[in-house]
């Protein structure tokens, strides 16, 4: 369907292709129909998410937060054409020799926290923050880029932003055991860059209590 495209990844939401576009390499994100989902529900979710993703990426870009630049949106076919970022994910980075050092982790944590604070300042909630969705740009020697805004939306609610951080925290503790220090550093940097950090971090404490079957000792 897409000319000269090479499938590079099948995420949960979409297929990601690498293809030439206007004399450069571009990422094409295709949200394909999910066979398991009722067609009506599928269409509703897909078209909503394509629009939200493009809007949120654009909003971040305008606020100078490093995210992939959107080149084109093809709503009919649920396609978003965007900048190809060369580099590795934070998830991959954390298992490299360099990524295991406290110095590198601390640097990356600071960058992540700052970027997330800025993103929340412009009322963008990512919705699916994991270490797979944080990339490190090769050309700048590993600066952090936020990617995959597939579940993102615009909201000014403290609650939504706190849940956003909670999702990342869970991704950290489940995927990378023993990185509590790094996550604390992310929150520290977040505290400096986010305008409503005090309220959001306080809300995060409430959100943490929400999963079921938590032990309530002490």
């Amino acid at each position: 369907m897409i000319h000269n495209a090479q499938l590079i990844k099948q995420g949960a939401e979409a297929k990601v292709y690498l293809a030439p576009f206007c004399q450069r390499q571009a990422i094409i994100k295709e949200r394909f129909a999910k066979a398991y989902r009722h067609p009506t529900l599928d269409k509703k979710l897909t078209s909503r998410r394509v629009v939200q993703e493009a809007r949120c990426l654009n909003r971040c870009q305008k606020a100078l937060i490093d995210t992939p630049t959107v080149y084109m949106v093809d709503l009919e076919n649920s396609l978003i054409y965007m900048e190809y970022i060369e580099g590795i994910s934070v998830r991959e980075f954390l298992v490299t020799a360099e990524g295991e050092t406290p110095e590198a982790q601390s640097r990356v944590a600071k960058e992540i926290g700052t970027a997330l604070g800025k993103m929340h300042n412009i009322e963008v909630v990512h919705g699916d923050l994991t270490t797979s969705n944080l990339m490190m740009r090769k050309e700048t020697g590993g600066s952090v880029v936020l990617i995959d805004f597939g579940l993102s939306y615009v909201s000014n609610l403290i609650e939504d932003k706190a849940v956003d951080l909670y999702v990342l925290e869970r991704a950290f503790t489940s995927t990378h055991p023993n990185t509590e220090v790094m996550f604390a550093q992310i929150l520290e940097a977040y505290g400096e860059s986010s305008k409503a950090a005090k309220l959001i971090l306080k809300k995060l404490e409430d959100v943490r209590m929400r999963g079921r079957k938590r032990s309530m000792l002490g």
Binding site: E13, K34, H38, L41, A171, T175
Partner: peptide, 19 residues
């Protein structure tokens, strides 16, 4: 059923892709 199961399958798929 269609709605809540779609939510479950979606999050399971996200975990599979993540891991």
């Amino acid at each position: 059923q269609e709605t809540v199961f779609a939510m479950l399958v979606e999050t399971t798929e996200r975990a599979m892709a993540h891991i």
